[in-house]
């Protein structure tokens, strides 16, 4: 009787696990199924590299959105990566442990602030500053980059700190024993040993930036064009989906799913890179 119970539990768990995982798999397949046929029918080259996005005319070229997403993500990295990595180094190597233990969760808490709030700050505070100092509409590539750069800070800082703290204390002691200063130890020993973890943190931050939607919609301006300057208004891949989803039908809807497929592939590539970087860290240790 008892043995039956054990078997039943195992079966229940197996069925649950199987349905949860296959459900998730189905979602991925559903999106691919809605998007991939369109890409092939419309032509990969036409879809990815044409600048004509006129849904009402049946023209679906997402090149401007791809370029915008790349620029915005790159901009977010330029703003967020150094700030985040420097912050992580300072907090883990130059800050007393108890202080770090308060500041780190505080910063992580900020990952929880809804993206619409970041977007709102971008509209109310950042855009007017940009408009006043550099001209242009304010809602721009630059504004989106800065806001996203701030949004990825918690991810970059938190994962970087974890990987810096994972460097064995004996490495640092070895360096100090040879008369090195904190900075010499940090950049010659600690950063080297935690490099792949830091890189992983930036990659995961990029994943967050490229997938962010609401904040970007609010601050990027959303015009479909290839930006010439950081002050131009741009529309990213995610914004494109969100802006047109509620009224899209037929080919247009499929084109949005196809945009989703492109995003999906980018995310999978970024995740693979991050997990390779993290695994490298494990192997090295």
């Amino acid at each position: 009787m008892k043995l039956f119970g054990e078997k039943a539990v195992r079966r229940i768990l197996m069925v649950t696990a199987f349905s949860a995982l296959s459900g998730l798999l189905l979602i991925a397949l559903f999106i691919l199924n809605e998007g991939l046929p369109f890409i092939f029918k419309y032509g990969i080259k036409e879809f990815l590299f044409s600048s004509d996005w006129y849904p009402h005319l049946g023209k679906f070229g997402i090149y401007p959105m791809i370029v915008a997403s790349l620029w915005v993500t790159l901009g977010a990295m330029i703003v967020g990566a150094p700030l985040g990595v420097f912050g992580a180094i300072f907090l883990s190597e130059y800050t007393p442990r108890p202080v770090m233990k308060i500041i780190k969760p505080t910063i992580e808490l900020l990952a929880a602030i809804p993206s619409v709030v970041y977007g709102f700050i971008g509209v109310m505070v950042l855009a007017p500053i940009i408009r006043a100092n550099f001209g242009g509409p304010g809602l721009s590539l630059l504004a989106a980059s800065i806001i996203l750069g701030i949004m990825i800070l918690p991810t970059v800082i938190s994962i970087s700190i974890d990987s810096i703290l994972a460097v064995p204390q004996s490495y640092r002691e070895g360096s100090y024993a040879l008369g090195a200063t904190t900075w010499q130890t940090t950049h010659m020993v600690t950063i080297k040993a935690s490099k792949s973890g830091i890189i992983a943190s930036i990659i995961l931050g990029l994943g967050r930036a490229i997938g962010e939607t609401m904040a970007v919609i609010m601050v990027a301006g959303n015009s479909v064009n290839i930006p010439n300057t950081p002050l131009d208004s741009v529309r990213t891949l995610t914004a494109n989906i969100a802006l047109e989803m509620s009224y899209a039908t037929g080919m247009h809807r499929q084109a949005l799913f196809a945009t989703g497929v492109v995003l999906l592939i980018v995310i999978i590539i970024l995740n693979s890179l991050a997990s390779v970087a993290i695994r490298k860290r494990m192997v090295k240790r």
């Binding site: 979602i27 559903f30 999106i31 995961l204 994943g207 967050r208 490229i210 997938g211 962010e212 939607t213 995610t238 989906i241 969100a242 989803m245 949005l256 799913f257 989703g260 995003l263 999906l264 995310i267 970024l270 995740n271």
Partner: peptide, 10 residues
């Protein structure tokens, strides 16, 4: 890591 907008689309 999938953007939430894709879940919204789905």
């Amino acid at each position: 890591g999938i953007p939430s907008i894709i879940f919204g689309l789905f």
